[in-house]
Nucleic acid binder design. Structure first.
Length: 423
RNA sequence: GUGGCGGUAGCUCAGUUGGCAGAGCACUGGGUUGUGGCCCCAGAGGUCGCGGGUUCAAGUCCCGUCCGUCACCCCA
């Protein structure tokens, strides 16, 4: 029997893992720049958290959650997204914190879907939540932050789509209007949309069937039926984003799958991806925290799919480059010296490595090249006899004979040059 | 949950009307380069996804099953 990772869950191997780490590090730098602090949450929540937050009729809750009974009395679920957990933690422990609260989170999310390009059962999200402000400037800030993330970490064209889905005042009336319209057009809708019409009429806007597309062209848009306050909120948000020189498209058919969204919703999409082309998405959720039993608290945020973001970087894989040295040694005595020298170098923060497979000098030199070390140190028979070591600069192909002391000094000097270059 | 395509060496794949399981890359040893990259020689590496069936004979044909992939559904 072959052991393998569960369906839709993959190992992130080096050197890919290095790119992950680097991307996460840059994102965190940006979060910090905007004044967000990390909240570290459990990967499991009581199932109730997601039922109430995401909505019992949503697909995520209906068929995509990894849910199990914990010793028979509590139903637990692997988190399918991050916002519900943040809201739960807020109500549990942070309701008295000074507002606004600016939080970011990162980690794996889980949805039991059929995997395809850009969609996995375990996927890694980075997200931010700005809690406590109902003002358009809050929406504009998280969108601006997301935009900066795209600019710093994305590649190629990335489109920003924005819309408003209204609030508890204007959305119910609109939903009725839309459903009535769709009822009249029923015979032109596909099977899926006839079902959607009942469960979540807004989603008909997402359908790719040509017939439905035509029907939707003529359909009333939520954006044209917002109440006064939602309308003003949208206009102010767009105004701020315009002033910030952020280019976007007001997409009146943009809707989102999670029930908790109110007013502003947005998505960043790349045409370079497959069918799953949303890299980051989010919006406002003014009712969520109150629905968890907390004080009425407006909030807005977004999350980003790391795998999808990284998929944009096609094939560019530079050879790994390492400061420091690879130590090549032939005979047993030389190998022992290399081992001691490696400890000495590492103690001085100089990266180094050496053979542990008893391989030939040639194979070791090859390894030095493959691993990308800037220097190779040779402890061959000649070096052993003379007591001096050979330091070879791999890029230049030059080398010199040095005492161990001189060699260490040389590598230390090179290390500080290297760290300056990286800044 | 539904559908299309696929599964042969670590990776990418070839394998004829059923007839001894192959190539390139990577890997290991060696030659050459003063000691890596280029080149040359040699070597190691395979339950042909798994189970059943047809056949003298199955990687190849049939059935089932698992896994992967892309799309639908839905979503980061």
């Amino acid at each position: 029997m072959h052991l393998q990772a569960p369906k839709g869950m993959s190992d992130v191997l080096p050197p890919e893992s290095g790119r992950w780490k680097e991307t996460i590090r840059k994102a965190e730098e940006l979060f910090d720049l905007y004044g967000y602090e990390e909240i570290i949450l459990p990967v499991l929540e009581q199932t109730e958290v997601f039922l109430k937050g995401i909505g019992p009729t949503s697909d995520i809750v209906q068929k995509e959650m990894f849910t199990f009974e914990d010793r028979g009395d509590t139903s637990l679920t692997l988190r399918p997204e991050g916002t519900a957990g943040v809201a739960r933690a807020f109500v549990q422990s942070m309701a008295k914190y000074p507002m606004p609260l600016k939080l970011y989170y990162q980690g794996p999310m889980f949805r039991r879907e059929r995997p395809q390009k850009g969609r996995f059962r375990q996927f890694f999200q980075l997200g931010v939540e700005l809690i406590g402000s109902a003002k358009p400037v809050a929406d504009a800030e998280v969108i601006a932050l997301a935009q900066d993330l795209m600019a710093a970490l994305g590649e190629g064209r990335i489109d920003l789509l924005v819309n408003s889905v209204g609030d508890s005042r204007c959305r119910p009336a609109y939903s009725e209007m839309l459903r009535a319209y769709l009822d009249r057009m029923e015979d032109r809708l596909c099977q899926d949309c006839r079902r959607r019409k009942q469960t979540n009429p807004l989603r008909v806007f997402d359908c790719k069937e040509p017939g439905c597309f035509q029907v939707v062209q003529e359909a009333p848009r939520i954006t044209d039926h917002l109440c006064e306050k939602c309308q003003a909120h949208l206009e102010e948000t767009l105004e701020l984003l315009g002033q910030a020189q952020i280019t976007l498209e007001l997409d009146k058919s943009l809707v989102r799958g999670l029930d908790y969204y109110t007013r502003t919703v947005f998505e960043f999409r790349s045409p370079a991806l497959g069918a799953q082309n949303t890299i980051a998405a989010g919006g406002r959720y003014d009712g969520l925290i109150e629905s968890y039993g907390g004080p009425p608290t407006p909030a807005t945020g977004f999350s980003l799919g790391l795998e999808r973001l990284l998929m944009l970087h096609s094939g560019e894989r530079g050879k790994a480059e390492r400061a420091g040295a690879y130590l090549v040694a032939e005979e047993a005595e030389a190998r022992n010296r290399a081992f001691i020298l490696a400890r000495e170098l590492r103690g001085r923060d100089i990266p180094c490595d050496l053979d542990c497979l008893d391989r030939s000098m040639k194979a070791q030199a090859k390894a030095a090249d493959r691993l990308g070390y800037r220097y190779t140190v040779f402890l061959g028979p000649e070096e052993l006899a003379s007591g001096r070591l050979t330091l070879r600069n791999m890029a230049a192909g030059t080398q010199e004979s040095l005492s161990e002391k001189e060699l260490i000094a040389r590598l230390e000097a090179a290390r500080s040059t290297a760290s300056k270059e990286n800044e």
